[in-house]
Every structure is written in structure tokens, then in C-alpha cells.
């Protein structure tokens, strides 16, 4: 197990609280679940796009908020973390395809099932979260075994 400092715990909790407040805000204002895979899935779905601004306007705005967040984080004096991607391009592409297909098939990801659905005590979301955590642990275990 890696060393865990009090500072890391506090900043992790703070980040989590911000994510939670965002989810509460989106529900209070727009009546929507803050499920990122659902939001992006709607944007790559021609049927949804035909639904008009009502359907895709808020989705695009939420994604825009995510995209500008690193700039705002830097503006308010936060130090952006360095990103390290340990996987090869082939693994990243395959992983991306699977994440895209899987989140749509399962109706949610870490945010929609793991945060919003679990907060509603949805049985589906609890089962989904346990499932993707387990296959996530197993996948990293396998990668460490074969050294990918």
C-alpha cells in the first residue's frame, strides 16, 4: 500500500465534495443526473441531437465546463498536476473503445452510477459500481502480471 498523508486525504475529500456539490447543483437547477457517460453519449447520438437545443444544449455546456476547468484551476492559483499515462497507445485505444461502449451499455460510469445512483440508493447503481470496481481491480492485476 502506498503512503497516505493527511494532506492527500484532505485534498481528496475536498475534490470529492466539489464533485458532489456539482451533482447536487445539476439536479437542483436542471433536474438532471450528473452522469458524464450519459451526457457525452447524448452528444454523439444523432437521435438526441435532433431533439433540439433542449436536449443537447445543457450537455454541451456541462462538457464545456469540464474543458475550461483546468484553465480556471490555474487562474485561481491551483497547481495543475502532471499527468502520467503508463499504457501504450494500443491499450489506450482499446480501453477507450471499451469504456465508451461499456458505459452506454451499462447505463452509466463512475459519476452516474458510482456517485449519483449510489446516492439515490439505486440497486442497479450499487450492483454496477461493485461490478466495475471488481473488473477494474482484476484488469490492473492482470496488467501487472503480464507487465503491460
Amino acid at each position: 500500500m502506498a503512503a497516505l498523508t493527511l494532506e492527500t486525504i484532505l485534498i481528496s475529500l475536498a475534490g470529492g465534495v466539489m464533485i458532489g456539490l456539482s451533482a447536487v447543483m445539476l439536479m437542483a437547477l436542471n433536474g438532471r443526473i450528473a452522469g458524464i457517460s450519459g451526457i457525452i453519449g447524448g452528444l454523439v447520438n444523432p437521435v438526441m441531437l435532433k431533439g433540439g437545443l433542449d436536449q443537447w444544449g445543457w450537455r454541451l455546456a456541462f462538457v464545456a465546463g469540464l474543458v475550461i476547468s483546468p484553465f480556471i484551476y490555474g487562474l485561481v492559483g491551483g497547481e495543475l498536476p502532471a499527468l502520467v499515462q503508463p499504457r501504450s497507445i494500443g491499450v489506450i485505444i482499446l480501453g477507450g473503445l471499451i469504456v465508451g461502449f461499456g458505459t452506454r451499455l451499462g447505463g452509466g460510469c463512475t459519476s452516474g452510477h458510482g456517485v449519483c445512483g449510489m446516492a439515490r440508493l439505486s440497486q442497479r447503481s450499487i450492483v454496477a459500481t461493485i461490478t466495475f470496481m471488481l473488473t477494474g481491480f482484476a484488469t490492473v492485476y492482470v496488467f501487472n502480471m503480464v507487465g503491460g
Binding site: L66, R87, G95, G102, L105, T135, F137, T139
Partner: peptide, 26 residues
């Protein structure tokens, strides 16, 4: 669909280290 989709998502997550939200913000 729920179980299969969540299983796949976890596999992709473990492969690439990204789920949808962080990937967009990154």
C-alpha cells in the same frame, strides 16, 4: 446489459486509467 456494460467499463478503466469525466477534463 447492466452487468455486462459495467464489467466492460471496469476493464477499459483499468486498461487506460480513464473514465469519461476525467478524460474530458484532462
Amino acid at each position: 446489459r447492466l452487468i455486462g456494460g459495467a464489467s466492460l467499463f471496469g476493464i477499459g478503466w483499468g486498461m487506460a486509467g480513464y473514465c469519461p469525466g476525467p478524460a474530458i477534463a484532462a
